[in-house]
Simulated scan of single mutants.
Amino acid sequence: MTLAGYDHLLAAGRRLQWDDAAVDLRADAAAWPALDPALAARVTALVAGFCVAEVAVAAHLHPFGPAAGNPSAAACFALQAQDERRHARFFARAAAEVLGIDPDTGARAFAAPGVLALFETDLPALADRLAAGDAALPEAVGLYHLVLEGIVFAIGQEALLDTLTVAGVLPGVRDGLARVQGDERWHVGLGVMCLQDAGGTAEAGDVATLAARAAAAWGPDVATPERVERALAVHARRLTVLARAGAAAR
């Protein structure tokens, strides 16, 4: 499997651009007070987790472009950073306008501890190492794109969309979330392309050691065995592609 080039990904990312301020959350805000308390608590934990996570990924992507050493790849990382800032604004709106919590000061109290650890400890530490030249781009991409976006975000997004769809509530949040998912697909594709260009290096395989912890980051109510199995199966397929790329390069 060989992915299309960076310019193709860049064009795809540009076509997906959307306005987070245009997502209508008025019906969601009106319906929120009448939601079942258990449902509201579940949605709150997920939205709060995304508030924390999206702020973190937007803040810590900046060393990736300079480390890429490829103008087209750097342009992709720059567009991804723009996407991540938009996602952070959308989830902040959902928290403030629908859930009634402050996304800056209140979200951490509702977010899962595993999510906080990955996005507030592991990600900043690796981004700092990348910026200082103490980590290689494949290692950073492996954590950021394959683990955090490809596993943690995938499980949380699926859980939130499933919850809202089954309950038939919060159409604005559903709309915005579906748009976020579209962006994340090309982001993960960017990560796989970077690792493939690096020849499926050892750092790519090393991220497998983080996968199980990442999959469980949301807690058992969200990270159900079925969702974890699906996310890890996709993760394993990506690592297989990268291993083959590495073998071919040698």
Rank of each mutant, 00 (worst) to 15 (best):
T2R: 15
L10A: 12
L10S: 08
R15A: 15
L16D: 11
Q17K: 11
R26P: 00
A29L: 11
P33D: 09
A34Q: 11
A38R: 14
A38L: 11
L39F: 10
A41M: 03
A41P: 00
R42T: 11
A48R: 00
G49W: 10
A56T: 00
A56H: 00
A56D: 00
A58T: 01
H60W: 04
P63K: 00
P63E: 01
N70S: 13
S72F: 05
C76W: 09
A78Y: 01
L79D: 02
Q82E: 12
D83T: 04
R85A: 15
A92D: 11
V98I: 06
G100I: 07
G100F: 03
I101T: 05
D102V: 05
G106N: 06
A107T: 02
A112C: 08
G114E: 04
L116D: 05
A117D: 14
T121P: 00
T121C: 02
P124H: 01
A125K: 02
A125P: 02
D128V: 01
L130K: 02
L130G: 09
P138M: 09
A140I: 01
L143K: 05
L146H: 14
I151C: 10
I155E: 04
G156H: 09
A167Y: 09
G168Q: 07
V169C: 10
L170H: 06
L170S: 07
P171A: 12
P171K: 09
P171G: 12
L177P: 01
V180F: 05
G182R: 13
L190F: 09
G191P: 05
L195V: 05
Q196P: 00
Q196K: 07
D197E: 15
E203T: 06
G205F: 09
L210E: 12
L210M: 14
A211N: 13
A211H: 12
A211D: 11
A217Y: 04
P220C: 14
A223G: 06
A223D: 07
E226S: 14
A231C: 08
R238V: 08
V241N: 12
A245N: 03
A245E: 03
A245C: 12
A248S: 14
